[in-house]
């Protein structure tokens, strides 16, 4: 029985892929260890890290959230529009978060109460959200005047220490990280703690494995699944705000396609699309795998098309490695069981 509850594997499968990719590029790409590259890598991966965690939890609960990209666009457009009309930055943030949470809530309600499959529900919601973003922004980039009360939006786009110390300094740049990276690290810690230390983790695995038995054993599945989608929507809205801060403006389509990368990160991280299995740490490593590849290939001057070829190949090869790792684990477990049975038989024989 103990073996069945494998919800806390010691090492996510993607750590192997990450190690391979990281070592490979660390050795072959000469600029890979250059000052600043790793902090730049973290900065660029921040957005993907944030949504990949939400995606991982949704996938573990047996669903998928394709509305992440649309949610990012819409929540960023909402925040940008509030700033444009001179609203306070706190209001803009709340507007963005509320947008994400409401979209997640609607996803959850439609999936649980109206029994529409997650794939279709969230796909539809992605289009609704993206189109609303286009309508609100009239398909034009949203800018705002730099008001004194909203100066923080500008400040947050920089690095933590370099602004205080004034001028640009490479050494400072290396040790300091950007505010955006800091936010993503905090979110990572919060989500991991919530997942490991509260009922969230156990319930998500239970629901993902078999929703009906989870319900029969007293878990309020409707509430928890809706909550999971709301969490994913909330994380997507944080990602939207990150992108807003990064570009100091909002392109109405800025979230387009990001849900694909989030799914890839989660799946690379060993999250089975069948649900009930996987880890958040795996999704985080999966996101890092994607950005390590991108950053290394860009440094190397490889053309864009080959970057996509590589990412596609890594996904497929990564899945093969994931399956192999699973296979070996299962085999090891079987061997242990077999030994137990054999010793049991030997015991019963006497």
């Amino acid at each position: 029985m103990k073996k069945e509850r494998r919800f806390n594997p010691s090492l996510p499968n993607s750590s192997y892929i990450f190690l391979i990719v990281f070592l490979f590029f660390g050795i072959t790409v000469e600029k890979f260890w250059s000052p600043g590259n790793l902090s730049t890598l973290l900065l660029q991966a921040s957005v993907l890290l944030t949504i990949a965690m939400g995606m991982a939890i949704v996938i573990m609960s047996g669903g998928v959230d394709l509305s992440v990209g649309g949610t990012i666009s819409l929540s960023a457009v909402v925040a940008g529009t509030i700033l444009k009309f001179g609203g306070h930055w706190i209001l803009a943030l709340l507007g963005a978060f509320a947008t994400g949470i409401v979209i997640g809530f609607l996803n959850g309600i439609v999936i649980q109460k109206m029994k529409v499959v997650p794939f279709i529900t969230t796909f539809g919601m992605a289009n609704i959200a993206q189109s609303l973003a286009n309508v609100i922004s009239q398909k034009r980039t949203v800018y705002w005047d730099q008001l004194a009360q909203n100066e923080i939006i500008k400040t947050l786009s920089g690095n933590i220490f370099s602004k205080q110390l004034g001028s640009y300094d490479l050494a400072v740049d290396v040790i300091s990280i950007s505010y955006i990276s800091l936010v993503s690290i905090l979110v990572m810690i919060a989500i991991n703690v919530a997942f490991k230390k509260t009922r969230l983790g156990v319930y998500v695995y239970a629901i993902g494995k078999d929703q009906e038995s989870a319900r029969l054993s007293g878990i309020k599945t409707d509430a928890w699944v809706t909550g999971v989608y709301m969490l994913s929507g909330f994380l997507a809205s944080i990602a939207g705000v990150m992108l807003l801060i990064r570009t100091q403006s909002v392109q109405p389509t800025l979230g387009e396609g990001l849900e694909f990368y989030a799914v890839v990160s989660a799946v690379l991280g060993g999250n089975s699309l069948k649900g009930g299995k996987g880890s958040i740490g795996g999704a985080i490593l999966g996101a890092f795998v994607l950005y390590t590849i991108r950053s290394a290939l860009t440094l190397e001057g490889v053309s864009t098309f080959w970057v996509l070829v590589t990412i596609g190949s890594v996904l497929i090869v990564g899945m093969v490695i994931n399956n192999l790792v699973d296979y070996f684990e299962r085999k090891a477990q079987l061997r242990v069981k077999l030994q137990q049975v054999e010793s049991g038989l030997a015991g019963g024989d006497k």
């Binding site: 600029k31 250059s34 000052p35 600043g36 590259n37 730049t40 900065l43 660029q44 992108l243 990064r246 570009t247 392109q251 800025l254 387009e256 396609g257 991108r294 950053s295 860009t298 440094l299 001057g301 053309s303 864009t304 970057v307 996509l308």
Partner: peptide, 26 residues
């Protein structure tokens, strides 16, 4: 000369990433 473009056509976010990478690259 290193000629690059964003993976998602017309993505300014990716252009920013490439510029950051170039700064790192010196």
């Amino acid at each position: 000369l290193n000629c690059v473009g964003p993976e998602t056509p017309f993505s300014v976010e990716e252009q920013i990433q490439i510029i950051e990478q170039s700064i790192t690259d010196g």
